[in-house]
């Protein structure tokens, strides 16, 4: 099939950037979206135009490196990552608009590449369980009810892609943060630091310039791992509890 692509191009963080239009043909339905961009890049390279920069690594939906705003939807029209989106979701002759994640906490570095370091800094503020190597008790010392373990797992599948932020009209990272709070809060091992974890992570979240959540729900619709809104409720509850405990 043939497509018209409108793509955001920006030479570096300081450049104003703008939309550019490209045509690609020879796109097959079996291609992934990123392979389609690879094809375009080969064409650009041949023409002497610098290829479009975009992030990807695993290309199997797990590393969280890829992420594009496709026709106004984070990761495109299917509930999956950009790398797992296939061209069979589009029709011949279609015009596709491709933009980077837009969030002031995720500055654009070039074209479609953004800096998501803010997520790492949020994790640094308590998204962990403090246990030094070697000091762990025998794994079976603390049984974890299966349902709790399942819930912890379900939300621990967050890949840190940032689609929630990109989709949220407030630019909030609450879903990402809630997923981590719920993952660790659901397990007995996560209890000792539960209060300080939520207070510090939220503080860093705010400091990074993410917006506050007003429970709109676009984040969860965009999340490739289908992290549910429960985690934001949990996040709010944990913060309230921490407040009660004097944090």
């Amino acid at each position: 099939m043939k497509l018209t692509l409108k793509i955001w191009r920006q030479t570096d963080a300081n450049d104003a950037g703008g939309m550019h239009t490209y045509d690609v043909d020879d796109v097959s339905a079996d291609m992934s979206f990123l392979e389609m961009l690879d094809v375009l890049n080969e064409q650009l390279n041949a023409k002497g135009e610098e290829p479009i920069a975009f992030d990807s690594d695993c290309r199997e939906g797990i590393c969280g490196m890829c992420g594009l705003m496709i026709n106004g939807e984070a990761h495109g029209p299917v509930t999956t990552t950009t790398c797992q989106l296939h061209m069979r979701s589009f029709t011949d002759g279609e015009t596709i608009t491709i933009e980077p994640w837009r969030s002031d906490a995720f500055p654009v570095l070039k074209d479609l590449v953004v800096d998501r370091g803010a997520f790492d800094r949020i994790i640094q503020q308590g998204g962990f369980i403090s246990v030094n190597t070697g000091s762990a008790p025998e794994a079976h010392a603390v049984p974890v009810p299966r349902d709790d373990a399942m819930r912890a797992f379900n939300v621990a599948t967050c890949i840190g892609c940032g689609a929630c932020v990109a989709a949220c009209p407030n630019g909030s990272a609450s879903l990402f943060m809630g997923a981590k709070i719920t993952h660790l809060g659901e397990l007995p091992q996560g209890q000792p630091e539960r209060d300080s974890r939520v207070v510090n992570m939220v503080a860093q979240h705010d400091h990074e310039g993410f917006g506050g959540c007003t429970n709109i729900g676009e984040c969860t619709a965009a999340c490739p791992k289908e992290i549910p809104l429960d985690v934001i409720s949990q996040l709010n509850k944990d913060l309230r509890t921490a407040m009660k405990h004097g944090h």
């Binding site: 503020q125 207070v199 510090n200 939220v202 917006g211 506050g212 709010n236 913060l239 944090h247």
Partner: peptide
């Protein structure tokens, strides 16, 4: 950090 200075507190 204080819980009462957070966006979530505003929300509450």
């Amino acid at each position: 950090a204080r819980a009462t200075q957070s966006t979530i507190f505003l929300k509450i």
